[in-house]
Amino acid sequence: MTYVNSTANALGDFLMSPFRGANPWPGMLAISFVTAIVFVWVFKVFSNQRGLKRKKGRMMARALELLLFRHDMVVSLTAFGRLAAANFSYFGELLKPIAVSLIPALLLLIQIACWYEYRPFAIGEPILVQVDFSDDFPMMSREIECVSSEGLETETDSLRIPSLNQANWRLRARAAGFGWVDVKADDASVRKEIVVDDRLLKVSDRRVQSGFWDTLFHPVESPIEQAVPIKQVRVYYPHRQLFVAGIEVHWVIAFLVLTMVFGLLIGRLFKVSF
């Protein structure tokens, strides 16, 4: 998983590196465009274009049949059944390219989420750092500490929640940059990155102990070692907001709509049948 994440991180950083400005839209447009090209190509290569055309034609014919004989119930019902069958058959043709695209699409969405789900802290904003300890670690009787880098100010003592075996600190962003906190429990120490900036930058809201899904969904920072009594260090970043004509749009919606629009245009250009 670590190698997959490293490759995906490197690719994501490379693609997004020209778009680290204050405006998140150029990056969104670019990543949607590149994604559309790649997935149209994948679709063209892994789909049976001739079969697809044939099945789309059949669907059209069944639809016309339904329309023409709408006054005859028996024929209409039969046509409806044939239309449904044609639809299933069409979707069957899509299974192969979808299966091929599924894992890259998931990795891509996870990478984009690192850029668009949250935004870095602004200078002056409070930062809540939450540390979840292993169930067998007696947090209340041990010494725990949070040391922050320059540019971050630790404002509070640790707030310990025995029922959750969790400790929290509040920091404040004082200067822009890639800062960090070192969370120390007994002799172990875990470093968590905290980004303060007003640009579009990749952030990681949590660093987790290894586990397939946790590692897959939080690819930016390497997993916490198993020997350390800390399950995860979480930083509550603010959600990034994207606006279209003053209306907030979730990044997933924006990405999917843009990718589909670009995909349809590119598909037409390269004569790809969907």
Binding site: D157, S158, L159, R160, I161, P162, S163, L164, N168
Partner: peptide, 11 residues
């Protein structure tokens, strides 16, 4: 609201 058992802090 979570309160620290010993310190005047709340989450």
């Amino acid at each position: 609201v979570y309160l620290d058992p010993e310190r005047p802090l709340a989450k």
